[in-house]
């Protein structure tokens, strides 16, 4: 039996145009989805539950609209969901991590799963900061996860860049293949632990119609920062960083089409790269 908490965030669909206005990014008519990396984390949680039994709790920190992402997570297969209302919370990663750690702590998960990063803020900081606060080890950028008992891990053929790690003395372990800038590293870490999901971990499923109907009756709680233990709500109220400006991307000068026969094009391009772009 595994109790698994999945951290997820609702983000703009990756196809969406981003319109920067003085009030912030324009959200009108935008389509929102579960952050693609978090979808891998959620799918992995459900697969591990299907294999080992247990429970999957989806947790988000977000505004009211992110309720939809949790409903989708329930329809995909999570058993319960919790939304920490981001209303009074800054967008600073330390604040969000302090608040989320306080939400996760009483759930006492065996496994904490999250996406490698959220495609909107692109920081990849919150889950790891939460793990640090919770004292959990981590393996990041997972492309394969196996949960093993201590006996099963011992029974694996001896391998190792390092010997058995000194801090390992647990009932269960995660054997994780990690993507490290294109290389693949295999590590074993004891549970409870945080694992972050990289593309390639699995193929996320779509919710079926009956499951969408069933999801409407699954428990979905909403919490506010004020309901958290005092220490956490204080930390959450003391952001370490603030956004001072939101900017559109720097404009790119209009490009040139290079005319001529293929050989002429190659010659012009090389000369333009040298003379105009000051390259080569």
């Amino acid at each position: 039996m595994l109790k698994i908490v999945v951290l997820l965030k609702q983000t703009f669909d990756t196809e969406e145009k981003i319109v920067v206005t003085p009030e912030g990014v324009d959200e009108r008519d935008a389509k929102f989805v579960i952050n693609p990396y978090d979808e891998y984390a959620l799918e992995e949680a459900i697969r591990q539950r299907e294999k080992h039994g247990g429970q999957v709790i989806a947790v988000t920190c977000g505004p009211e609209r992110s309720q939809d992402a949790l409903r989708t997570a329930l329809a995909i297969g999570a058993d319960e969901a919790v939304r920490l209302d981001s209303g009074k919370l800054s967008d600073d990663s330390a604040s969000v991590a302090a608040a989320l750690a306080a939400v996760i702590e009483p759930l006492k998960p065996d496994l904490l799963l999250a996406g490698l990063f959220a495609v909107d803020s692109g920081s990849g900081s919150v889950a790891l900061q939460a793990a640090e606060r919770l004292g959990l080890p981590h393996a990041s950028s997972a492309v394969k996860v196996d949960i093993l008992t201590a006996a099963e891990l011992m029974a694996l053929p001896a391998a190792g860049e390092t010997g058995p790690a000194t801090g390992q003395n647990a009932e269960r372990y995660a054997l994780v293949e990690r993507d490290v800038e294109g290389d693949t590293e295999t590590v074993a870490i004891p549970l409870p632990a945080l694992i972050t999901a990289q593309q390639g971990l699995n193929e996320p499923r779509y919710p079926s119609l009956p499951n969408i109907m069933k999801a409407k009756r699954k428990p979905l709680r909403t919490l506010t920062v004020q309901e958290l233990p005092e220490e956490a709500s204080l930390a959450a109220a003391a952001p370490r960083t603030v956004r001072t400006q939101l900017l559109p991307p720097p404009p790119r000068a209009a490009g040139k089409r290079i005319p001529g026969s293929p050989a002429e094009q190659a010659a012009s391009l090389v000369s333009l790269l040298q003379s105009e772009a000051k390259l080569l």
Binding site: P137, A139, A159, G160, E161, T162, G163, P164, A165, T166, G167, Q168, L175, V180, E181, G182, D183, T184, E185, T186, V187, A188, I189, P190, A193
Partner: peptide, 19 residues
């Protein structure tokens, strides 16, 4: 206390310059 036991590292980028 070390938690992470590194079991293997497979180079797949074939020694090419880091992208």
């Amino acid at each position: 206390p070390l938690y992470t036991a590194v079991r293997s590292l497979v180079r797949r980028t074939g020694g090419q310059l880091d992208l």
